[in-house]
């Protein structure tokens, strides 16, 4: 469904991505792991077109999207949930969701406000509340809901557990598993290995702008050498 091949990206003169290659199949949850600065967020932003890749391909459902504008990529069916959440603080919950709304594909069951509230019941109790007056956990739910309103077939989740209390992280994991059951494909960037293990099918380990290891989460947990080299040590 998503195939990223030889993706390079620069920030100013820093060469952040140095040929990232990864793939996600329909309905799969793939975790992108790695230290801070390894290039996880940049990979997501490059797929989304928010950082212009200097080289490489991003194929989604057969179309090459590299170099396209973010809005075109969003319309092609990729949703992006940023690490900083970026809720519209002056807009209410309902209005935030409305901004995200895009028509579904023929045959796709469309996301509605009610469906978002079924996934995150606590949002349903604060429909008219401005985004700026919500807690970190609620904002995280709203930013995911807002992206879902665009009826994406793949979502990029950038560190959804960052800065959240453990109990909220557990709820986040449940929600991701529910989305996976609905057939959504998820590319997740994460630092919290425990969380990644709860939700993902496969992991790609990123280091210095390249994928260094790929495999199932079970294999990763068992491979002390890889964990030491790229994640823990």
């Amino acid at each position: 469904m998503l195939e990223v091949e030889g993706l390079h990206a620069h920030y100013g003169r820093a060469h952040i991505l140095q040929g990232v290659t990864l793939a996600a199949r329909q309905g799969e949850v793939v975790a992108l792991l790695g230290r801070n600065g390894a290039g996880k967020s940049t990979t997501m932003k490059s797929i989304m077109g928010m950082v212009r890749p200097s080289q490489g391909q991003v194929r989604f459902e057969g179309r090459d999207l590299a170099g396209r504008e973010p809005f075109e990529i969003a319309r092609a069916g990729i949703g992006y949930v940023p690490e900083e959440r970026r809720i519209f603080t002056e807009l209410t919950v309902m209005e935030n969701l409305d901004v995200g709304r895009r028509p579904p594909r023929p045959g796709q069951q469309a996301w509605t406000e009610e469906r978002v509230f079924a996934l995150f019941p606590s949002l349903g109790a604060m429909r008219a509340r401005p985004g700026g007056r919500m807690s970190g956990g609620e904002q995280q739910m709203l930013t995911i809901g807002r992206t879902l309103m665009g009826n994406p077939r793949l979502i990029l989740l950038d560190e959804p557990s960052e800065g959240l209390a453990p109990v909220i992280i557990e709820r986040m994991a449940d929600a991701i598993l529910a989305l996976k059951r609905d057939g959504l494909t998820v590319l997740l960037s994460e630092q919290n290995l425990h969380f990644a293990r709860l939700v993902s099918d496969r992991a790609c380990v990123l280091e210095k702008g390249q994928i260094r290891w790929e495999g199932t989460l079970e294999a990763l947990m068992a491979d002390e050498a890889v964990k030491q080299q790229y994640l823990v040590a």
Partner: peptide, 12 residues
């Protein structure tokens, strides 16, 4: 545990 730590599944 109830308000914060949860079951521990996400922090080991």
């Amino acid at each position: 545990r109830e308000v914060y730590l949860g079951t521990g599944a996400t922090h080991g």
